[in-house]
């Protein structure tokens, strides 16, 4: 286990180094000088330009600049956004936390629905239920997520008016951001409209959650079904059946524990599509998250913000993948012997 841990940790360090190098070189890869990239419309005064040069150590060599960039990141001094003059670090924390809330709630919904559906359709393999679920998951896999989100808006928000159109809470509520997790913030806020605010927040999160969860849900259905069918052909399942256990007992005592030992790895592999989907859906629902911020700063050519988003999202993905690998290896020694993680 320790050898595995060290190998994975080594991988993590190297990957984060490469990612930070990539994010740093973004400034140099932009057309023109780095200072032009930071100041695309030439509106900054000379004093402001000098401050930027100092902040990024622009008159020094490449590696000194990189060292400066890294020390800036660790000091929490990520620069200020050119557009709204907010410190990027604060904006990044609050928007990434709201992205995470959306992604986690979508993933939770996907697990609650996808895994049981996958189990049932594997148990009744070949029945009409199985066939319906399989074809529904193929359809769900092929739906363009932005189109699906717009159809949800059209039906449930504009047509039936059940849910609000966009944003994450009604404009009337002023919740101070303490922990950056909206539900906790509402609970902490000393407000007479606490309950109404909570209700408003819940109503706001439902539509984007529904829109995002299609992708992980279909993936989970397919993975669960395929691996349970795979497991059911193994010898130990045949042995259990021959011993006289019923199919139901076999499922609960042998097939499911074996499936859930690799479950965490499957969930980890879904982080990447989950975040991609969340980015697009945030843009549609005007959810103040990292994806929407990234797209807006891309249009506005706000380089420090793009760097911050890219670094945060990709470091998050690699951390999740390493953590799930470690958890899988910790719970299942067989996974430790892979030559390449």
């Amino acid at each position: 286990m320790w050898r595995y841990f060290i190998r994975k940790f080594n991988l993590l360090v190297i990957t984060i180094f490469l990612l930070s190098l990539l994010s740093f070189s973004l400034l140099h890869l932009m057309p023109g000088l780095p200072l032009d990239a930071l100041n695309p419309d030439g509106s900054l005064s000379l004093a402001e330009q000098r401050r930027l040069v100092e902040h990024y150590a622009l008159e020094q060599g490449f590696w000194q600049q990189y060292a400066q960039y890294i020390s800036n990141i660790f000091n929490g001094n990520w620069g200020t956004s050119r557009i709204d003059q907010i410190p990027i670090f604060d904006q990044m924390v609050s928007s990434f936390m709201s992205t995470l809330q959306l992604a986690v709630s979508a993933m939770a919904l996907a697990m609650f629905i996808g895994v049981p559906l996958g189990i049932i359709s594997a148990y009744y393999h070949g029945s009409w239920f199985d066939r319906t679920v399989t074809s529904m998951s193929l359809i769900g896999q092929s739906i363009p997520v932005f189109w699906w989100a717009l159809m949800l808006i059209l039906l449930l928000a504009l047509g039936l008016q059940w849910f609000p159109l966009s944003g994450r809470i009604g404009l009337l509520y002023d919740i101070p951001e303490v922990s950056h997790i909206l539900l906790i913030d509402i609970a902490l806020a000393d407000d007479e409209y606490q309950r109404a605010a909570l209700w408003s927040a819940v109503r706001h999160i439902i539509l984007p959650t529904l829109a995002i969860s299609v992708i992980p849900m279909t993936a989970l259905i397919q993975i669960t079904r395929a691996s349970l069918i795979d497991i059911s052909e193994k010898n130990y399942i045949q042995a259990a059946r021959a011993k006289g256990l019923s199919r139901y007992q076999v499922l609960w005592r042998h097939a499911l524990p074996n499936y859930f030992s690799s479950f965490i790895r499957h969930v980890g592999a879904l982080t990447n599509p989950l975040l991609t989907t969340t980015m697009v859906v945030e843009y549609i629902f005007d959810w103040p998250g990292a994806g929407r911020w990234l797209i807006h700063s891309l249009v506005a050519q706000d380089v420090p913000a793009i760097q911050a988003c890219m670094l945060t999202i990709s470091v998050f993905v690699i951390c999740i993948s390493i953590i799930t690998d470690l958890l899988a290896a910790w719970s299942n020694p067989k996974e430790r012997n892979q030559s390449h993680g």
Partner: peptide, 28 residues
């Protein structure tokens, strides 16, 4: 081969849409 693996892990850590957005950020 091990260098390739580390590079690949780095690139695969970036969601494909984010990677595309990066290229667009650089080239317009």
């Amino acid at each position: 081969s091990s260098i390739l693996h580390h590079l690949l892990d780095t690139i695969l850590a970036i969601p494909s849409l984010l990677l595309a957005i990066l290229v667009i950020a650089i080239l317009g």
